[in-house]
Each structure stands twice: as C-alpha cells, then as structure tokens.
Design a protein around this nucleic acid. Sequence first.
DNA 1: AGTTGTGAAGTGTTTCACAGCA
DNA 2: TGCTGTGAAACACTTCACAACT
Lengths: 256, 256
Amino acid sequence: MATGRTHRPATRSRGIPEATVARLPLYLRALTALSERSVPTVSSEELAAAAGVNSAKLRKDFSYLGSYGTRGVGYDVEYLVYQISRELGLTQDWPVVIVGIGNLGAALANYGGFASRGFRVAALIDADPAMAGKPVAGMPVQHSDDLEKIIEDNGVSIGVIATPAGAAQPVCDRLVAAGVTSILNFAPTVLSVPDGVDVRKVDLSIELQILAFHEQRKAGEEGGGTESATPPAARGGAASAGRKGPDGDIPAVMPA
Amino acid sequence: MATGRTHRPATRSRGIPEATVARLPLYLRALTALSERSVPTVSSEELAAAAGVNSAKLRKDFSYLGSYGTRGVGYDVEYLVYQISRELGLTQDWPVVIVGIGNLGAALANYGGFASRGFRVAALIDADPAMAGKPVAGMPVQHSDDLEKIIEDNGVSIGVIATPAGAAQPVCDRLVAAGVTSILNFAPTVLSVPDGVDVRKVDLSIELQILAFHEQRKAGEEGGGTESATPPAARGGAASAGRKGPDGDIPAVMPA
DNA sequence: AGTTGTGAAGTGTTTCACAGCA
DNA sequence: TGCTGTGAAACACTTCACAACT
C-alpha cells in the first residue's frame, strides 16, 4: 500500500518503480540467506524462486539498479547484497521510535528483524504514566511528554505508531512537527500528513477482509453446493437478499 | 501485497479488480464511522476524503459493485455498508486460528478489530507445552499437537501464522493439509502453498525498508548540504566508496 | 444545480521473447 | 551453451472529463 496522502509524484530521481522498490527487501532477504550459506553466485531463476517471484520480473527489477549480473553465470551474491542494501539506504543505521507500547508495540520492540537490518530502536514511548520506566525488550519506556526531545536528541526520522486509533493522528502530528518524515502506521485509521512525509500502513483487519473476499469466492465457486470441504460456519443473519432499508444486521464497529 | 504464489488468474467471477478489493475495507471503515454518527448519505468526494483516496477512484471502485448511488445526492451510508460487507463476505462469521502465541500472536489475539468485523478467533495454538492452557486474551492456548483436530472441529478456513520464520512453512503445510485455504503470514519468510490457497503477508521489516528508501531519497534531495533538519545518524561502516561498479556512490538524484 | 457512472486516455507494471555477451 | 538485460506487447490501474440522471 502506498502513502496515506502525500505520495510524491514518482520523484524524478533515478526512477526506480515503486513496485520494484517494494520487492527489493524480498530479494535482499533471500540473498542474505544465500550469503549465510556461503553461496557465491545465483541465477535469476534460483533467486526468483527463493523470493517467490518470477525470474523475468526479477531481472527487470535488477536492471533498474544497473547491470550487476554476468551473462551465462548469474549474480554475485555478496555484491548484490551490498548494492541492494545501498539502494535501500540500509548502509546507514536508522534510529526509530515506537509510540504506543501495548501488546503490539511490545511485540514490535521485541522483533529481532529491526536491529539486524539497518534499524535501531532509539526509544519506546507511551502515554500511560504507569508504563514510564518499565523495561520492555530491555529498554525503559519513556513518557510521551518527552516525545519531541527524544526525536530531536536522537535525530529520529522514522516513527512507528502502534497506539489505539484515536491517539494516532495527534501522535502523528507531534512526530511530524518534531521532524519525523516517515511513518509506519499500525493504527486502523487514515493519517493525514503534510507534503513530504511518507506514511505506510499495516492493517490486520484489512488483510483479513481481503482474504475473506477470496475465501468467499472459493466457497461460491465449488458448484453452489453447500457441503464444501471447509464449511464457513455461516451465521444466522444477513446473507439473505437484503434490499435497501431493513438490513437490521450490519456488523462492524470501529476498533478499540 | 499479493499472494505468495498462487493467485488465481482474475477468476472470471464478477471480476472486481484486485486493487479495488484492497480498498473496500477502507471504505467500509469510513462508512462505519459515518454510520455511527448517524450520517444518512455521503458524496463520493466526502467519503473519498475520509478514506484517503481520490473521488474518481472511489466512484470507479463502486461502479464494479453496482450502481448504488443516487445522482445529485450521493450514497446511502447504511445501504453501502451492507453491500460492501456482503461483497467482502463479512455477513458471515469466519473462524480464525492464530498459530504462534509469542508477543505478536498475543497482540493479535487481543486485537479488538477481529470480533467486530466478521471474524472470530476460534483458537490460539502454540508449540510450546509450557504455553498450553495459559489464558491469552481470555482464551486458553492449545498445543499444536491438536492443530488438525481444532481446524476440523471448528471449520476453520483462515489461519494466521505468527511463529518464528523457521516454523512457518511446516505450520503452513499442516494448516493447508487440515483444510485451511487462506493464510495471513507474519513470519518473515516466503511460504509455498498448493494452488487454490491464498497467502497474504505482513512484514514489518519490509515496510521499514521501503520507508528507508524514500527517506534516503529525501535526505539526498535537499541540495547536498549536510545540515538537514533530521540528520540520519550515519554509521561508521559500509557506506564507503562503491566496489566493482564504476558508479561507486551516486547519490541517485538527478537535479531538477 | 449537483453528483454519479463510465468511456477514453494516460500511466504504471508484468510478461514475453530474444539479442547479446560470457 | 547458458543466462542476463531489455525492447516491445500485454495487462492492470488511475485519472480525466463529461453525459446521464435526480
């Protein structure tokens, strides 16, 4: 998913397509695994299989970065790891703050993938005074009163929002005002940000709803019969031919 | 992101574009909020703003569902909520299992958005015998020995994988063998599944890496000066001169 | 007058298929 | 011979702009 609002119009940079950028981390992960097994070179076909894409796409993607392969041979694993890391900006170490240390925030703080991949958790921030000072993932939680100071002292430009929906926009505004220009939003709400700030969102219930859509299609496809191998446990209500007005059953309520 | 491998070739169904499907949950959320405020109708312009998309796109999206608006007036909120819910398959109640009850799994189990949006957590499953029986989110964790039985007894067709990377593929295989046909994967690994099974992945470190890419571009863009408002705290290592490639270290920004 | 619904044009992405090189 | 790199074709998605309708 793209940015919430402000998506720069395909910055005239060296124009790497957004779709390609989104796949580079995938390639990087596969390459890192190969590197750890001391595999020296890899073909587009093999790497594509490991990353779960097709090889023509992979070659096209790499062609935007430069000509890093050798015809008849493949790609040098170490060299590609370096080039992709550099392209993604992972040869520097990005300090990140996580705001909202509930279940999810704590999970993120404990997530190992951070440290190893160019990111460093600079601070954990929560609005609850009772959380302040408590250690989470070996790091004391700080109170959100100090948010601006923390951002500035650590030169943080990437913020992760894991607060409840209602708190997300105010937190976002404060992060942006303090200098953060990239935000990863886990709260189920649309953030609005000024131009020049990137927002990406991760939304569990959206992903599940997309799966439900396809799941429903599958169920319907198997011939209209009712005994599918995995009966979807139909509920009493709604599914009838509801016309306008009297649906009476509408589920869905805003999150906690 | 799309499915790991097996994505049916735009089933001839009533062909709603995948991009549209991915936005329906967004519209649904915005509409639900309006519904709670008892707003009776909404224009494409207003709803688009609330959902963070542009109005032409929204109208096009709705046009795939049918003609549910009234020219000169807008859309009936309640009616649209119902139609979108139905299209997404949320008028039934999908039982879901969560496998891997670590930090993340517990966070997911506690996530309120589930219950309210057409999903029901049918079971929490973990491989650690010490976890078995422990209550998480008011529900006892069950041991993974019983995975198949749980799936079958509850008619589960959607599984959430929140295990460490190494356990993900074996768990996936067991889920699929037991009848699960849609998987939401939080483990940082590529899952391979047979045809007919949908996989969606949510990957924190990928999202952060994409942000880092854009963040790096921003830093490079501000005119080569060093005093950016948010210095990215360059690390000692790697960033030195390129290797092989003759381009070495191009900041990757074509001026103007 | 106001707003939807949609052809048509524009833009981005994927796939094909093969020339070019090691 | 084998594999990369890439034009060109195919496909998907977005945006424009306006006719159709209330």
